[in-house]
Design a protein around this nucleic acid. Structure first.
Length: 193
DNA sequence: GCCAACGTTGGC
DNA sequence: GCCAACGTTGGC
């Protein structure tokens, strides 16, 4: 059987959520806007049929919430050439595309979200790129890691460890507001970097 | 090519 | 809000 690879992409629930992906035509979207070479290289290594964990970062409840399937392999990201697009890259040359995107189709929502905090304390996940390379927005996941995440999602959430007992303190009201510099593209152009 | 300044990501 | 990590830019 052909080798299937696994990946993880990040999004923010209020920018492009897994619900948005489920609601998209054919449950599919182009994962555009990635502007980081390491992430770009991972996009280009994706093959049709590979499975992709969908992770919420930032102000979202940081967790893996669903799985998507790669349905179209890397092709040039047109948003890099559109000066009106937030992800426009003036140095990008149409004749020699520098940024790429893939199409992802929602496969399934996980039975429950697998939160970052749980990932951190789960044996076997300590080497996940998610934990080691914080800012990488498209990253590889091993077969073993994928299997562990799935198993966690299919079992009840473990009780929070006692060491984690921090009082629930409200965020400052303005911590919710997004800095303007972070203005995101809309759903058509998710926040992939 | 070096490296300081700067900008962004993203957890806390 | 704070700040660590780290990628990019630009002066030299």
């Amino acid at each position: 059987m052909p080798t299937r690879n696994y990946w993880l992409v990040k999004s923010e629930a209020d920018v492009f959520s897994f619900d948005d992906l489920l609601a998209a035509p054919n449950r599919t979207t182009g994962w555009d806007g990635v502007r980081n070479y390491a992430a770009r290289n991972h996009l280009r290594a994706m093959r049709a049929g590979d499975l992709v964990l969908f992770y919420y970062s930032m102000e979202s409840d940081k967790a893996i919430v669903g799985v998507a399937t790669v349905v179209r392999e890397a092709y040039p990201d047109a948003t890099a050439l559109d000066s009106a697009d937030p992800h426009y890259d003036a140095k990008s040359d149409p004749a020699a595309p520098r940024w790429f995107m893939v199409d992802l189709q929602a496969a399934e929502r996980l039975p429950r979200p697998v939160r970052l905090e749980e990932i951190k304390r789960t044996k076997g996940l300590e080497n996940m790129a998610l934990l080691r390379i914080g800012r990488l927005s498209v990253q590889p996941v091993t077969d073993a890691e994928f299997a562990i995440i799935r198993r966690l999602a299919e079992s009840p959430a473990a009780p929070a460890p006692k060491t984690k007992s921090k009082s629930v303190k409200a965020k400052p009201a303005n911590a919710r507001a997004k800095p303007k510099s972070r203005a995101k593209a809309k759903p058509a152009a998710k926040r992939k970097r």
